[in-house]
Structures are given as structure tokens and as C-alpha cells.
Amino acid sequence: MFDTALTTADFVFLAKGAGMTIVVTIISVIAGTVLGIVFGVIRYQLGAIWAAPLIFVLDIFRSIPLLIQLVLANAFMGTILRLNMSGFTVACIVLSMYTAAYCAEIVRGGIEAVPATTRRAARSLGMSWGQDMREIVLPLATRVALPSWIGLALGVMKDSALVYVVQVTELLRSTQILITRLQEPLLLLMICGAFYFVISFPLARFGGYLEKRWSND
């Protein structure tokens, strides 16, 4: 009744694609978060006027399609700088910057959510700026920022489906290759979609739970 040409080898091929999706996502999210925290703190410390160049640059990453960012970065590295960079490296660099651009906003929002009076109290007690940041701002801002950060990380995982454009074979790309060969689009797309869903759904739920639990009202 139900037969398919899908073999075990094809499953291994899909699994490799899924592994690539996860590897690219983890690298980009870690690098992007570190950069995003740095940018976010700088953005907060300098204020809207002095940080204008930074705001502008980060805004670019949020206003241009990721596909174009990837193509441009690839062309820039390959034909202009003539670096022999693999598509994987380019994909990670672009996705990290993309993550950092969004993360900086989340970090700034988190820092701004810490009441100024609390921070002044900390400084009055003799804490240095660094201590204030670590002991007061970090724990309080995390409560505000973590749910959005989970959303961002999941968004990056979903957007990593676009790195096929720099010749990285991630899950959706390997699905498409199999579709071309087996001509069974529905089944293959279902498998691929289910994979994304199984990873994304529980984490999104967890983020929603944290948001509800940690909100003040």
C-alpha cells in the first residue's frame, strides 16, 4: 500500500544534513552571542548618539535578506580578498554576525530592564562597574533576555536553512537533493519538517514557560 524508494543510505545522508544544520547553528549561536553581548554592552554604554555607527552596521544585518548577505560575503571573500575560504566558514561568519545583530538588541533590552536605582544602590555600596555588571545586571538582565534569546537561537537554526547558497549541504538542502532523485517530495519534506519541529517546538515551549514564570506580573 505504502512503498517508498527511501533507503537506509538516504537516511544516513539526511542525518548528515541534520548534523550540519546543528553544527552550523551551535557555532553561530555561540559566536554570535559572545559578539552580541559585547556589542550590546557597548551600545548601552555609549548611548544612541555615540553608538550610531555600531547601530547602523548592526541594522544592516537585520534589514538585508540573509541570502544576499551570504552571497555577498562569499563573493567578497572569494573574488575580492581571494581567500580560499570554505563555504562552511563563510556561512558561520555570516550567521554569527546575523545572530550578533539581533543579540545586541536583546542584551541592550535586558540591561535597560534593570532599574537604574538598583544599579546606583550597587555602586553606592562600593561595587565597581565590573562588579555591578557581573553581580547585579547579569542575573537580572538574564531573566528578561533569556526567553528572547531562546527564540533567537531557534530563529538562527531555521535561518541556517539558507546556507545552501554557499555550498553547505545542510538538512533542507540534502532533502532537496533526495527529492530530485527520488521524486517523493511530500514524504521527504515531512521528514525534514518533523526534524526541525521536534527540535524547535520543545525549546520554544520552554522559552514561553520561562517568560511566564519569570515575568513580574
Binding site: P185, L186, L189, Y196, F197, S200, A204
Partner: peptide, 23 residues
């Protein structure tokens, strides 16, 4: 809502093109 939010947009476009195509 859950499918739209938890799968890549590219996947949804593939679904509209190749998925509906298989029907």
C-alpha cells in the same frame, strides 16, 4: 501557529511548491 513558527520559512515555501505539487 506551531508549524509556522517552528519550521524554516524556506521549508514552508518548499511545502507550498513541491508539497502541493505532489497532490
Amino acid at each position: 501557529v506551531e508549524i509556522a513558527r517552528n519550521t524554516p520559512a524556506l521549508f514552508q515555501i518548499y511545502m507550498a511548491h513541491f508539497g502541493l505539487g505532489s497532490f
